[in-house]
Design a protein around this nucleic acid. Sequence first.
DNA 1: CCTACCGGTTCAGTCAATGAACTGATAGCG
DNA 2: CGCTATCAGTTCATTGACTGAACCGGTAGG
Lengths: 164, 164
Amino acid sequence: MALPREYETQACALARSLEVVGERWTLLIVRDLFFGVTRFTDLQAHLDIPRAVLTQRLARLAEAGIVQRDPYALTDAGRELWPIVHQLMQWGERHLVADGPVRLFAHATCGTELAHDGACPTCGTAPPPTDIETRPGSGTPVVVRTDPISVALRRPHRLLTPLS
Amino acid sequence: MALPREYETQACALARSLEVVGERWTLLIVRDLFFGVTRFTDLQAHLDIPRAVLTQRLARLAEAGIVQRDPYALTDAGRELWPIVHQLMQWGERHLVADGPVRLFAHATCGTELAHDGACPTCGTAPPPTDIETRPGSGTPVVVRTDPISVALRRPHRLLTPLS
DNA sequence: CCTACCGGTTCAGTCAATGAACTGATAGCG
DNA sequence: CGCTATCAGTTCATTGACTGAACCGGTAGG
């Protein structure tokens, strides 16, 4: 029988992508890696994910060439997931969050807030994640986490810069 | 206990989005709706998905305002998922498919193939899905399906145009 | 030598996915 | 009117993944 995480009968490239990044927790792990989390323990504490599941997901991401180990970080292929992660966040902000954006993203080199499609309105191009600074927005999150990683992630910082 | 499809402890808008479109099969259902599939039976036959799961996913998508019923179709909010679906496909084509694109997308009004980011290189803007024509590419799919829906989807056609 | 920390593994219980069979409503046809 | 096909589901036993808690081994510091 087909393993539930696969889509063997689907020819589409979307099915291939979802076999790698479509499992529960996987895109949240990728998001944390964009945000600068680098340690297994920190990912586990921030996501409240069972360790066994985190181990399995990181193994699959490493196997697919999306993350490297020692320390955990996104590869070039993993960094190319940024538009997808960003647009999923923006779509959720528009349709599922009540009062304004929970998190903002700005082009670090010019300070302009990014548009929905990830482009910088001032510069006209979509900056790479290394040139993006993130900080909390005006919206009220459904929960306010107080663990050290969540607190650190609320300080304005550039993407892909390890928290340390 | 938290239902496995939710991410109650995560404040991020990404978690909100994934609670709606992050479950197994959901984005493949949305893809088929973009491709013009409109009937429960056709979705079930094309995706090889258990009927009970398809019922649950469509209920959740309708509840979230992504699809309407009679017939099944994407709402405006659902159509805004196109950049995400398209970029996930393009990412999979680049990193997970061996020999060339399995499916192509062109700006219907000028015939130009879309870039990775969904923009038309000729016109400089990202066309809406109603202005996009799709057809099979040169790549070899991992499986070749012969059901009537798969055959119909291999004919060049515009997105969001019911097959019938 | 002792302790803390990191990155896991193991395990029993729970919950969702799977595939097959069944249900009911509607439409077309002779 | 009865017969058949189609559509959109529901029900159910089985399988398998997710969960939370406990345990394990290596390394660094004091």
